[in-house]
Nucleic acid binder design. Structure first.
Lengths: 344, 344
DNA sequence: GCCCGAGTTGTGAGCGTTAACAATGTAGCT
DNA sequence: AGCTACATTGTTAACGCTCACAACTCGGGC
């Protein structure tokens, strides 16, 4: 823990002096370059240890023109999905030797996204990942001047923008099909908010499954992802005895629907089946345990980084179309769905 | 969008040339220093706009010896609590003009924390916040060489370490008192994992309230915060009809307890009252809606940053004892708690 | 007309690192 | 012994910015 004598942090020159070599040799050791005699190497390492030296990343970044920082723009990281994606991103980035700098948005508008990207640009990030679940976000992104390369995650396809997303439509299709297979005439839907790409894809998947099966496509309402909105929509659904199956666009809203059904005296799954989407950790412990669709948020984050790194490496961006990676979903069957009740 | 002519990003000198001034004047404009003639200021701004110039933060950091980056070490950011705290930290830091670099740990040990701090030190952070909910973390922190200043958040008190935390004990006391006031003979407890400071404080608060009231202090089991563990412990609790009130150390485990009670045919709150801790957004929509204790995670994050900034400013660290900030809790009464049933 | 001071602008030297190149030393060969 | 080839080390100049200071302007008072 010996300090450099005077107050300031030790720099490479200090290490060099202590080890009796030039600063360049220290640099070589630090960067693992070849052609350093073992004995020298050892002396340098000892000096580094003795002084408690560590490299000044700003100077390094300045000289190499690489900041080693990746930017992340996120939205409502308090939710399970974004939080998990963020975690995946952070882990993958660190493993690849990058730092991660994040900006959380309170609202997604062209303006806030612009600001966030400018802010990250100020930090000289080498690339950016934007968790962009809303249509507005994807639109804001295209043709915006800002840090490159840029990859969108959890967003919908966009021209000229590399994207990684979960196969929402397939998941919704899958679970709707499941409900239909259980003998339900049709399946009602509680959708996510308008403008959210995930919500739209889930509607599309649901509608598709219904149409394929020749089932009627009922009206549906939009919630805002919160349990409360699910509860409110759930109450109107619970009031109609002809409804025997509901696919809710996320688990939190499904929780609200479950409660509404319970209050109205409709038993789940005996009278009505309810299914969710996301498979949050709590879903297994709802009453009853929720049938839902698992999506691997962490994988989305990891692939996002992997695409970004590829772009960072690759000489030029792929000419024709931006790469699109799709992460599959998985049906999780539990006890909130069952055979349709006998029509009496 | 005019580029500097050749390929590379424009630098201050380019702006200076275009505006017909010296690089120093550009710097002055950029930093909002006084004594720049309005006309000059305008020319510089125009040049910046024209070139799409933005400051190279590495060079700036090198020259000023300030990286403008704050490090955050977090643990399981997928949970509502840490995620909210992280959000509070990020917002507050950005507002103060700092960037935030985060490291998420998979496990909290002396070793992983050391690594995380080393990693952040490599990035020349100006200070660190560690979200350290476990005893091991706080211990690992004291007397560890690494980036300074350092503040711990959500951890327990530690010597020589500034800390911001929620008044867990008071919250636990409050809710136990509430249950007692409803006429319950005593209150059972489902604790969080050993080694977690929050869990320990909640046990202490619960025990204190019981002792003050002269109530018996029952045995209690440790869960792991997950709904599943709550469910498992809940089953043994549900099997004993003499138990009429349970205080569960967090909402997720309370969810599991709720389910166990339901399965065992014990009605909540008619037969048994159940209370949680945290007030996650879903708690209001459990069946029944959960009485719980609200804690302001965001505020913890904000205060953490505020303490850190004060330390960064202040000449020296406060001599005697490290500052400790305590964030209060608030009781949230819903329908999972009620009068004790008539003892028949 | 000249000098002074405040307001404005320019100059040069770092900040701590890496990159390019020059200068050693050291074997191995003829 | 003399030379070459290679391994090892040192030297110098960027990288793009801020800081300290020097050098100009331009009025007003004598």
């Amino acid at each position: 823990m010996a300090t450099a004598g005077n107050g300031r942090d030790p720099v490479m020159a200090d290490v060099a002096r202590v080890a009796g070599v030039s600063h360049q040799t220290v640099s070589r050791v630090l960067n693992g370059l070849p052609n350093v005699k073992p004995a020298t190497h050892e002396r340098v390492v000892a000096a580094i240890e003795e002084l408690g030296y560590h490299r000044n990343s700003s100077a390094r970044a300045l000289a190499t023109r690489r900041s080693q920082v990746l930017g992340v723009v996120a939205f409502d990281t308090t939710l399970y999905g974004p939080a998990s994606t963020l975690l995946g991103i952070e882990r993958a980035a660190r493993q690849a030797g990058y730092f991660v700098s994040i900006v959380s948005l309170t609202a997604i508008t062209r303006e806030t996204i612009r600001e966030a990207l400018d802010y990250l640009a100020e930090q000289s990030v080498e690339g950016c990942i934007v968790i962009a679940p809303k249509r507005a976000a994807v639109e804001a992104l295209t043709g915006l001047r800002g840090p490159r390369p840029l990859v969108a995650v959890e967003g919908g396809v966009a021209p000229d923008l590399p994207v990684v997303c979960v196969d929402q439509a397939a998941g919704a299709h899958q679970i709707t099909r499941h409900l239909l297979d259980l003998g339900h005439r049709t399946v009602w839907h509680v959708a996510g908010p308008r403008d959210w790409l995930e919500a739209e894809s889930r509607v599309a998947g649901w509608r598709g499954a219904l149409e394929e099966a020749g089932a009627a496509v009922p009206e549906y309402a939009h919630g805002d992802w919160s349990p409360r909105s699910g509860y409110e929509i759930g109450r109107t659904l619970a009031a109609r005895p002809d409804i025997t199956a509901v696919f809710v666009a996320n688990d939190q809203m499904a929780l609200g629907v479950l409660r509404a059904m319970g209050e109205a005296g409709r038993r789940v799954p005996a009278d009505v089946s309810v299914a969710g989407f996301d498979d949050v950790p709590e879903a297994e412990f709802f009453s009853p345990p929720l049938t839902t669709v698992y999506q691997d948020f962490g994988e989305v984050g990891r692939r996002g980084i992997s695409v970004l790194l590829r772009l960072l490496d690759g000489a030029a961006e792929p000419a024709a179309h931006a790469p699109i990676e799709v992460v599959p979903t998985r049906l999780v069957l539990r006890s909130s769905t069952a055979q349709a009740p006998d029509p009496t």
